[in-house]
Design a protein around this nucleic acid. Sequence first.
DNA 1: ATTGTAATGTTATAATATAACATTTTAAGT
DNA 2: ACTTAAAATGTTATATTATAACATTACAAT
Lengths: 134, 134
Amino acid sequence: MALASENLTKNQKTVLDILENSSEPLKAYTILFDIQKKGIKSPLQVYRALDKLIEIGKVHKIESRNSYVACKHEGCNAKTSTSFLICENCDSVTELTGNNLFSYFSKQAEKNNFNYKKHNLEIFGLCENCKLKN
Amino acid sequence: MALASENLTKNQKTVLDILENSSEPLKAYTILFDIQKKGIKSPLQVYRALDKLIEIGKVHKIESRNSYVACKHEGCNAKTSTSFLICENCDSVTELTGNNLFSYFSKQAEKNNFNYKKHNLEIFGLCENCKLKN
DNA sequence: ATTGTAATGTTATAATATAACATTTTAAGT
DNA sequence: ACTTAAAATGTTATATTATAACATTACAAT
């Protein structure tokens, strides 16, 4: 069985490629404008590729910004839960990994008799680079 | 000095009122349709009221759902950072409080040389009621 | 009273995302 | 190889969410 990333279709590869080569998250219509020369003509083609890439964990959505970012972790298992550090100055994004977040949130949820399934965490502030400059 | 909530204008009060009487988060256009009889005719009037209510901490936005929820905590200081438990079955929302989240996230950020400013956390799962039913 | 800030009302439009449907490609079993 | 069912595609239209621009009004602080 091949890796999911090897089974990508043309549109999916095109969208993933532009996300992987971006230093910050991209919006769907930014992606669309950037790849129209590659045969993608409608928003739906972009959204469908994004949906699939999100489903297999190669791309995550930054909800608060309606943006999409390629996952840099090999075999990322954050297909549902995601945790990000988002720089308010340069818009760069770092993904937090590790299961301690999962167990921490499970406990927080339990306190409220809530059954944890998944989460989305967005931490805003200044990244290392921008901290030094400002 | 009066409470911020006592200084609300007519539109702001109208929007806050409908949110406070809802058992789940509402979307901006749902609010608009529900209060057109009260003199609010355009989306912008709703969004402006929401912006102000969010600014003073009476309302929070659920980013992943483009919805808005009234804050139930007196003098809520979550003007910027928010943490929610969101039931995937009934869409009810519970806001997490307490500063332990803040300190926990600060530490997580520090590990990545990131300067924490604020956060948005959305935990999805089943609330107590729905847990029992399913 | 004056005056500056905030809020309002209104029209138009931008930005984000999905519906519907006909067609083509792909992968898996036989 | 052929069949076939699932997935992906292409295309047009439209739904949903949010803001721009600008003229006017309310109102609190000097």
